[in-house]
Amino acid sequence: MKAMVELYIQQFKTTLTMMFQYRASLLIWMIGQVLEPLVYLIVWSVVSASSGGSVGSYTTADFAAYYIILMVVNQVTYTWIMYEFEYRIREGGFSFALLKPVHPIHSDIADNVSSKVITLPVMILIAAGLGVVFHASISPAPWAVAMFIPVLLLAFLVRFLLEWTLAQAAFWTTRVGAINQLYFVLMLFLAGQIAPLTLLPSPLQAAAAVLPFRWLISFPVELLLGRLSPGETLVGLGAQVAWLVVSIVLMRIVWRAGLRTYTAVGA
């Protein structure tokens, strides 16, 4: 445990300096992260305004709050590991990471967290600004706010592990674009990005509840919006923990199989 803490402290020292080098790029990449939810926010606001001020249980102000929180949750939980992994394996750079005595996932986590230390304050400022512009308001119960932190952390961990596992598809094929795109489509529809899940047709809602996607983005957002009862929150928390276990097991299985097939291309 102590070794792990020391490892992470050292990792953060290097990755933070590294990420700080890329601060301009990090900010530019954020434009997409802001713009996509913003577009859906605007589209749904227009729909809501034209149908008497609400769609389903969402008023125009609720849509604003929903998408602004979603923007932040997505920023906290997102990864770019699929591109990174594909590049590493295609260029053979992964061989160096394998020489190190620790599992490479730790340096990837440190990378990811460091980038967010830099971008998250900016994102929160943007979210606050948009909240004012679009008159978003939320009134969650104090317990929901308290629960939001662990729920968000779990969402980050599960999403990171799942995407890290998915990224290992690059061990078998270096053309992973189609696989990634399929995953993004599922995220778009089943994690509540294209619309709040309750506005989707019920088969999709059912699929979203069984699959991990809802628990990665939509669930933390709904919690902070104050739309979940304590019971529903506990069920969601249980689902997150269950998916955490599943994703750890999956990650280990795929990792072992992947390593066996790995032959450094290009290096």
Partner: peptide, 26 residues
């Protein structure tokens, strides 16, 4: 072909979701 169809599918499904709640958009 797969990527283009998927991308088009997203657009169309997105429209379907939105127009299931509204008759016109702006």
């Amino acid at each position: 072909l797969f990527e283009s169809l998927l991308s088009l599918g997203i657009s169309l499904a997105g429209l379907a979701v939105i127009f299931s709640h509204a008759d016109t958009l702006g």
